[in-house]
Design a protein around this nucleic acid. Structure first.
Length: 346
DNA sequence: CCACATGATTGCGT
DNA sequence: ACGCAATCATGTGG
């Protein structure tokens, strides 16, 4: 009769579906220590379980048969039923933990927004492009920089999907395996479908916590990528000569009030092939730097003053003209040093 | 490599 | 929302 207890032990590892300890049994089998066991490769665990069952298969089969045929078997079954009833009752409620997947939702949303998760190539790259455009605000800029970014993003995306698939597959395999075992054992001891379902839920929770880690690190990777590639400061390019000339021309010909209106900015942006905020930035920088050191900009001021004088002269056939560095424009007699703290700068 | 130029960002005041 | 001032991070010429 000491045969039966041993038989039960042979299956105990996976069989105690009604017990809360099951989740702990898995890492225990691997020999890993508590919390860290979870992180261990699922493949290892699967492998070990497989090995265990394979090794003892014949023997177990024989013993199972012996047990099933034993005259005391119905009695044992009843006893197990009683025990189960008690334990299940005491367990109920304790097991009901609402998993707080608010964070998981956030991660999912972010991955979706970044185009990492979500539909394959089509929608994904579109979402990525949209996200990139939205965050960078660089409309008609060269897209060569984005392609590099996109390539890296695709790489992350691929790794993410591969890993995710791997985990999902492992989860399914494991679930199937456990379910088979439980079904098998339900012949020997009482296991309700509900319990199997709960087992499956437990397994899924375990796996989804692993998935969450994967998602977390993917999010981090994307963030780093973004900060490296989309931070315009890191990818600063000087404006081309023509753009700078156009901007300087406007600046020096409106020196008494170098604050382009919305429309003026728009036009300058168009002419220079830059964005309006870049125009604003440029004027902001220019005003402050000019004010800080007027002397340094005098030469530049004279050049542009002369230029506008010439063009003004050519327009008005020939007016008074010929005085180059001094005067074309708006009454605020300005050669550079005279830049007046007009309306704003003070 | 260094110093300076330059576009972008941030913090603050209005 | 906008501008100023300070600051960052890169670009560029010597």
């Amino acid at each position: 009769m000491d045969d039966q207890p041993r038989l039960m032990h042979a299956h105990a590892a996976v069989g105690m579906s009604g017990h809360p300890g099951l989740s702990q049994h898995i890492p225990d089998n691997t020999g890993a220590t508590d919390g860290d066991g979870r992180k261990q490769d699922i493949g290892d665990i699967l492998q070990q379980i497989m090995t265990i069952t394979d090794q003892s298969l014949d023997e177990a089969q024989a013993r199972k048969h012996a047990l099933n045929c034993h005259r005391m078997k119905p009695a044992l079954f009843n006893v197990l039923c009683d025990v189960k009833e008690k334990t299940v009752l005491s367990i109920r409620g304790a097991q009901e933990e609402e998993s707080p997947d608010a964070q998981l939702m956030r991660l999912d949303n972010m991955l979706l927004a970044e185009g990492v998760s979500g539909p394959e190539k089509g929608g994904g790259s579109a979402a990525a492009a949209a996200a990139a455009a939205a965050s960078a605000g660089v409309g008609a800029d060269n897209s060569t920089e984005h392609s590099d970014y996109r390539a890296k993003l695709t790489q992350i995306r691929q790794i993410y999907h591969t890993e995710l698939e791997k985990y999902e597959q492992a989860c399914n395999e494991f679930t199937t395996h456990v379910m088979n075992l439980l079904r098998e054992q339900s012949r020997t001891r009482p296991i309700s479908p509900k319990e199997i379902e709960r087992m499956v839920n437990i397994i899924h929770r375990k796996f989804s916590s692993i998935q969450m880690q994967l998602k977390q690190s993917t999010c981090e990777a994307v963030m780093i990528l973004r900060s490296r590639f989309l931070d315009a400061r890191r990818k600063r390019r000087n404006f081309n000569k023509q753009a700078t000339e156009i901007l300087n021309e406007y600046f020096y010909s409106h020196l008494s009030n170098p604050y382009p209106s919305e429309e003026a900015k728009e036009e300058l942006a168009k002419k220079c092939s830059i964005t309006m905020s870049q125009v604003s930035n440029w004027f902001g920088n220019k005003r402050i730097r000019y004010k800080k050191n007027i002397g340094k900009f005098q030469e530049e001021a004279n050049i542009y003053a002369a230029r506008t004088a010439v063009s003004a002269a050519s327009v008005s056939a020939h007016g008074s003209q010929t005085n180059s560095p001094s005067t074309p424009n708006s009454a605020g007699g300005y050669p550079s040093p005279c830049y007046q703290p007009d309306r704003r700068i003070q």
